[in-house]
């Protein structure tokens, strides 16, 4: 069975819960079991927010350090904070204005999502832009098209938001 463990992190207000749920729903749409763990409460006010997402046959909602396949970091500072969750062959998709030079693997892909979001006049779209970058790298358990189908269902009643979301996820 497909199995993937992902850490999604950033700061409160960036919409980490939203993309965690989109990924989880995409897993369910593909018939895969899923477990997530979310951050709520005080940290959502601009503090460190982290989601654990486990797709496949798992019992615990948390990922142990050294076990994650990938880290999606919506803010550059989260890379240093949370890369210890990664396996030695793990990857990082990070929002960063500059390319990140890390001393050893993991493989890092970066995107200046803040700038792209500003250009799109949609500061709320950073989360989907970074998610789109990770999807485009073909390292995730799902494809961009599968994700777009879930987003379309999610925002079906709100055409303006849907158009913005689809533009963001394909911006990379």
């Amino acid at each position: 069975m497909t199995s993937q463990q992902l850490i999604i992190s950033g700061v409160g207000g960036q919409g980490i819960l939203f993309i965690t749920r989109l990924l989880a729903e995409t897993a369910i749409a593909k018939g895969l079991p899923v477990l997530t763990s979310e951050t709520h409460g005080m940290a959502q006010r601009g503090g460190i927010v982290i989601s654990h997402l486990k797709i496949g046959d798992f019992a615990s909602p948390l990922i142990r350090p050294g076990q994650a396949d990938g880290l999606i970091a919506l803010s550059t500072s989260n890379v240093a904070l949370h890369r210890s969750f990664l396996r030695t062959d793990g990857w990082i998709a990070a929002n960063s204005a500059q390319p990140l030079c890390l001393a050893e693997p993991p493989q890092v892909i970066t995107i200046d999502a803040d700038q792209i979001a500003r250009n799109m006049d949609n500061p709320q779209a950073v989360n989907l832009i970074v998610l789109g970058k990770a999807l485009a790298s073909s390292r995730l358990f799902c494809t961009v098209d599968e994700m777009m189908a879930v987003i379309s269902r999610h925002l079906s009643g709100r055409p303006a938001q849907l158009a913005g979301a689809l533009a963001a996820v394909t911006a990379a």
Partner: peptide, 9 residues
């Protein structure tokens, strides 16, 4: 997990 990062505000 490294400590630090932004405090809530």
């Amino acid at each position: 997990t490294a400590a630090g990062g932004r405090r809530p505000t």
